[in-house]
Amino acid sequence: MDSHGFATRLLEARSQKDAWADWFQPVFDVLAPDTREPGFAAEYSVWNLGDVSLTCASAPATRTVRTSSHIRRSPIDHWVISYSGSGSTAVSTSNVELDAKAGVPFVWSLGQVSDSRRTASHRLQLYLPRDSFSAVGGSLDLAIGSMLDTGPGLLLAEYMLLLERNLPKLTTDDAARLPNAVRAMVAACVAPSADRSAWALPQIRLTLLEKVRQAVSKSLRSPSLGPDQLCRQTAMSRSQLYRVLESEGGVASYIQRRRLSEGFSMLCDTSNAQPIGEIATGLCFADQSSFSRIFKREFGMTPTDVRASAHSGLPPPKQRQKPGSQRSRMFSDCLQSF
């Protein structure tokens, strides 16, 4: 799935600020601070998901103003859920003052006059039309000008990051299902209920699994990696962690498969001359013998065979799973029920 948008990098430095401001007219006035540097390196991408849009912006510090004149000229009243992985945003409306920190999403509305001051940031925004989200409209209206700093709100932030990573890989059929999936996830996180959580369950599970995946990736070579460490890193309870990884064969099995997969990739890299024994111990296996035995059971080839195949100039062998083994659900798999 392709995005469209705008980037200033191909323009002359002296015209970048004005071009960035023009891009947002007539919806906003975007004002960049006066600096001695003439350039303004910024990029904005938009994925149109039917009646929902996700945007991604990377830009230096700016002030963004939406006045009553803008509202008359561009009468869009969508709710917006914003998330910044870095930087902060101070938002002023007629009745709200909000200082939003990085890492926590917040809600605002294009239907209101607003004045936002952002530090340099990388941010994601979900634009939610009122007609499409009327079922949770009351909850979204109540949330305008507030941060979604509860567990469900932070889960929604993780989901927005998951969308950003997966949208470029979606097929047309998958993309057609996505609006319903986004509606389910927003409803479950902004206005939680048993029914809404059940509707969004595939997306919730995948979001939590992605959170675990990233935590495991960061600590793959740590001998202490296990349930206790993952619970601390993901802010999950032990029972919740076990539920998330139940379909993966459990915590220990998931960690082992991720380590085996990393070893497989290292052995396929012809520039990596590290001895197999060092690869094994670096990935927290007891010794080369046990690593080789478990590796062959998982992939049907020994580590030596995989490395020899790579050095012979053959395409990297596929990571063959044993019959009946669990396969991690992909983002596209979780759209099938929508």
Rank of each mutant, 00 (worst) to 15 (best):
M1E: 11
G5H: 09
F6D: 10
S15D: 09
W20V: 10
W23I: 00
P26K: 10
P33S: 03
T35H: 04
P38T: 03
A41V: 15
A42Y: 05
Y44W: 15
W47F: 11
W47Y: 11
T55N: 11
S58N: 03
A59M: 10
T62D: 01
V65Q: 12
S68K: 06
S69I: 02
R73V: 02
I76Y: 03
H78S: 04
W79G: 01
W79P: 12
V80N: 07
I81P: 02
Y83H: 03
S84E: 03
V91F: 04
S92F: 14
S92K: 15
T93G: 06
E97K: 07
A102G: 09
P105K: 07
G111T: 04
S114W: 01
T119V: 00
R123V: 08
L124H: 09
Y127G: 00
S132I: 00
S134K: 00
V136T: 13
G137F: 13
L142N: 15
L148I: 03
P152K: 02
P152F: 00
G153Y: 04
L162M: 04
L162Y: 01
L163Y: 12
L163A: 05
L163P: 13
K169I: 05
A175W: 15
A176S: 13
A181Y: 08
A184T: 05
C189A: 09
A194W: 10
D195H: 10
Q203A: 13
I204M: 14
L206E: 15
L208T: 08
R221E: 15
L225N: 07
D228N: 11
R232Y: 13
R243Y: 09
E246N: 09
E246Q: 08
E246Y: 04
E248Q: 14
Q256R: 15
R258D: 14
L260Y: 12
S261Q: 13
G263T: 09
T270M: 05
G277K: 02
A280H: 01
T281E: 14
G282W: 00
C284F: 01
F285P: 14
F285I: 07
R293L: 06
T302Q: 09
P303C: 06
S309C: 10
A310S: 12
S312V: 01
